[in-house]
Design a protein around this nucleic acid. Structure first.
Lengths: 197, 197, 197, 197
DNA sequence: AGGTAATCGAGACGGTACGTCTTGTCTTACC
DNA sequence: GGTAAGACAAGACGTACCGTCTCGATTACCT
């Protein structure tokens, strides 16, 4: 619970931040594929070896840089007004806004793509980037189950995919201009099903 | 109304096939990132220029090679036994099998990843690879609507995402060993909703 | 002595001229190394095969094009005013002028360079381009010998090199701005020798 | 005034030598035109970039490799036995031997050819390869002038061309099998002139 | 007056080399 | 010992030409 034991003893904090900044700004400016480790090192004013010493790949740098962005404010719980549909719709609308922000979109998209092909990275992206957010849905759905608003047998881990995955899919595959109306519809369909009641 | 005037005049069919074969086999053997245009050309016994003449990128070659695989047998319609849930479950189970086949998985995954980052390619992947299959779901759902098995107001194009997107998501992000049980569950949740009936 | 037996029977005169023009103009514009057979064919409006059918190399085309330029006016004999020194100085001054003309300089220089490395081409360049001019010096020197102006034992074939080779050397190796004064000096040195008389 | 500031800081001596060796041996084996930078790099066990980093062209590499060969033994002065004709004949005979040595002939010829077409390289070839040798002739001729063996008004820089340029010319243009007899004749002609004494 | 065969333009083809770019390792000198 | 700097071996990139080949479409000769 104390300090990490074998952690780098004289690692330069200054370089670490400069590398994060360079990586994120380059990805934003020229895109992920044209961002190179050499480019990051040059912009960060850092030797290449300093990058290779602490990270294993370009994607690795970007993932940590991206995670570093989100540090600080603890992820807030989903709202619970008692109205499950309304709460989910509100959160998904906020998600739509986030996905539309290029500062988020470009690096997140790059990491998602890399994770599709590189299984190891994919696992880390899911675990460190997605999991925390998804857990909030699980929590909210369990609360709804306790309140009798969701059928008891339902597995929340699967249930949340009914509205989260379609949205993610549309985002990743440029299938959409996704709208509030779309996410609202997803929530309605998922909650009340497709067959006549 | 005579012969096409500006169509490529004497393109070598032999080379085209050899390039498709080389691209697919290399992606299967060493993975997409380590597959190079030079490698494809070498294995196909073809000059690099012949590839650059007809395709614009490695992904482009792979997409066409992959599409070429599926040519021939027209995509069959979804079964319609009258039992919507059973029909969907059967089709999704077949999809699970396909996604598990490495001959399909590796190139499809690579194309999906590339499409995430390259919007233009993404559009083509969706339009040429995904759309035809998705249309079959739309057709089946419309038939179900006419039979009164699906609520009239439901948009089939959105409805299908409730079970297709979660499956795709789990496949792409290595989130799951996805099972028949999982896809069955997806169908049940999607059809009957999450809230108590 | 009749018509050449296996000579090309239906060769296109139009193409031949166009190829000569294209070769010479390209060499003049972009230099010999950057002149390509493809470029010549394109500018001449000719298929590449038409060039390969009749010539064996880029240098071959240029040599024939260059020879073709000089066709027509028979090479005039050297003047013989009775004053050998004056006659030689006059001819060498004219040669200086020719070598300074870029229309002559660029292709001739390219052919000379190619001939240095390619022995077979070198022989042809010497035989077809140089020999005729050199023969004129031989003739003039022989006449001078008959007139008693040159020692009887002198080999004219070697003697002419005393003033021709230095000039050629300075031209080829950019050693000079060569001047009339220089060529005059060469003639004086060569005729009267270096040692005190 | 301390260490050279902008000098190449850590150039690999090992690579430099390997590149020289590879260049010279390849030119000797397959000739200059078929020698490629890729081939030199491969034989030297060196990355292409290492060549491009330090040299600007194939000819540049070869020139330096060739100069490197001659480093070490300072070029000796021409002999001065008091007999100018004999001294010149002896030196030219030695030159004939050198020009006949394929280890010298092939690269020197290639450099000469390249220098004919590339003015900048030509200047360097002349200055670094030829000039030092020619200066020896100038020195010897000046000594002869002081001894009264050469007319006072003669410019040694031009005078030496009377026998050196013809020899060079015959060498470069394959005009001759040049012999000791030929060079002896050149010296005689040049020293005593062509006109009757 | 056709028939036919060589020549033509066009340009795709299998190759090779180009000169550039990036990778990941390494070495040097500074701090 | 970590660092900035950057040389290094390796090798893919996309381009340019090479010399060969295959297409029709003219030709010009020869029945």
């Amino acid at each position: 619970m104390s300090a990490p034991p074998s952690a780098p003893r004289r690692r330069s904090e200054r370089s670490r931040r400069a590398i994060y900044d360079a990586a994120l700004s380059l990805v934003g400016e020229i895109g992920y594929p044209r961002t190179t480790i050499e480019g990051i090192a040059a912009r960060a004013g850092v030797g290449k070896q300093t990058i290779y010493r602490w990270w294993s790949s370009k994607a690795d740098v970007l993932l940590e840089a991206f995670l570093d962005l989100g540090d600080g404010p603890a992820p807030p719980a989903l709202p619970d007004t008692g109205d499950l549909a309304a709460d989910l719709k509100a959160v998904l609308r906020a998600t739509v806004d986030t996905l539309r922000d290029p500062r988020f979109d470009t690096p997140a998209r790059a990491l998602a793509a890399e994770g599709v092909v590189d299984a190891e990275l994919g696992r880390r992206v899911v675990a460190q980037l997605l999991q925390p957010s998804l857990q909030l849905y699980v929590d909210r759905l369990r609360a709804a189950q306790r309140a009798g608003d969701v059928r008891p047998g339902i597995d929340p881990r699967i249930a949340l995919e009914l509205f989260v995955s379609p949205l993610a899919q549309r985002w990743l595959q440029h299938t959409a201009p996704f709208s509030y109306e779309y996410t609202d519809t997803l929530v309605d369909y998922a909650l009340y099903g497709l067959v006549p009641r």
